[in-house]
Simulated scan of single mutants.
Amino acid sequence: MKKKQLGRTDLHTPPIIFGGNVFGWTLNEQESFEMLDELADRGFDMIDTADVYSRWAEGNKGGESERIIGKWMKDRGAREKVCLATKVGSSMQQGGPKDISKAHIIKAAEDSLKRLQTDYIDLYFTHWDDNKTPVEETLEAYQLLIDQGKVRYIGASNLSPERLRESLDASREKGLPKYEVFQPEYSLMERNKFEGEIRDICKKNHLGVTSYFSLASGFLTGKYKSKSDIEGKPREMFLKNYFDERGEKVLQALSGIADNYNISEAAVALRWIMNRPGITAPIASATRIKHLRSFHQAIDINLTEEDMQKLNEASE
């Protein structure tokens, strides 16, 4: 499987990154181990998680995904075989305050390292901005972690264009660590959060880009046909706003192209992202081993210009 360089780091990712939000949420520990084993066997060796995953499940408090990944890596002796990304800045309490202060980052990093049962993180993301901590303070915290060998590279997710630009300027002007990767929400259903100013900043500063919610929380798999299909489901809060005229157009376009190539809608949606300018690799999750077939289909298929245009027009 051909890998791609993440920005200007020496980290390389397979064409699709596996999203670890499902571990401890829609997959229990045993199921998570089975999925991780399969991913390793197939070469999908970059895992993206966060300290707050998977707090959404009833009874969870956050950190469950990291704990499962850490336990699996130790049990399998697999730490050196995995490129591991995790994040800091969200609150362990649903709706709680964001925090990217130096004190919080240092403590949160130590907590993540313990859960992951490792002494270093390959790629550490600012998950959400608190819009108050000076960017220099946040970057100084990362400098300390890098100097200690606990973090190799840093990235940012969900920053505004202004705060991302300010952070990159501070890195250049004050000799602080630079965000090397940006992680926006990006899919056929959510294009505005990346296309435009953010994409231009990433290109100008040679940032790798890894998109999250690449399948729009499962909407783009074609599994859900109406709001009644998602009632009471774990992903209802993410999916409920997609059932409109635009969503229907996107699903119709996906279905037609998928039928033409005899592949899944998910594969087409992932390939669309992989073909888009500025993208290094999309992040996607799966809850069944058989769903990984879509990953391989996305990697193997070549969409035509006409296919891409149909998807672009349906999703505008």
Rank of each mutant, 00 (worst) to 15 (best):
I283E: 02
R199F: 05
L84G: 10
D307R: 08
L176W: 10
R235F: 10
A85M: 11
I201L: 13
P177T: 10
E190T: 15
A253G: 15
M274P: 07
R67Q: 09
R76S: 12
E66F: 00
R271W: 08
S54F: 04
I289H: 02
R55Q: 14
A253I: 03
A281N: 05
E66S: 02
I17G: 02
S264N: 11
K193I: 02
R76K: 15
G256K: 12
E34T: 12
D45S: 14
T221E: 11
N60V: 04
L251H: 01
K310L: 15
R199Q: 15
P282C: 10
C202M: 05
E140M: 10
A286V: 11
N131F: 14
A267H: 04
L123K: 00
L164D: 02
I100A: 01
Y224E: 02
D307M: 09
S54A: 15
D244Q: 07
G96H: 11
T280L: 12
D10I: 08
P97M: 14
M237L: 12
K2R: 10
E29R: 05
G95L: 08
A281I: 08
P15M: 12
R246I: 13
M189Q: 13
I198R: 06
N205T: 10
K107R: 15
Q148T: 03
I299P: 03
A170N: 04
F125K: 05
S214F: 11
Y224P: 00
K225C: 00
N21R: 00
L39K: 09
A85F: 06
I69C: 03
F238V: 04
S228D: 15
I263M: 06
K193P: 00
R76H: 09
S101G: 11
I273Y: 04
G59W: 05
D130A: 04
E29A: 03
T280V: 11
V135N: 03
E197P: 06
A109Y: 02
K107L: 12
R276Y: 14
R76G: 13
K233T: 13
K98F: 14
C202D: 02
Q30H: 10
E31T: 01
T280Q: 11
K107N: 13
M46K: 00
F33C: 05
P277Q: 07
K74N: 12
L188P: 06
H12M: 09
E185R: 14
A286H: 04
I16Y: 06
D119I: 00
Y179K: 06
D41T: 05
L123D: 00
G95F: 11
Q148S: 13
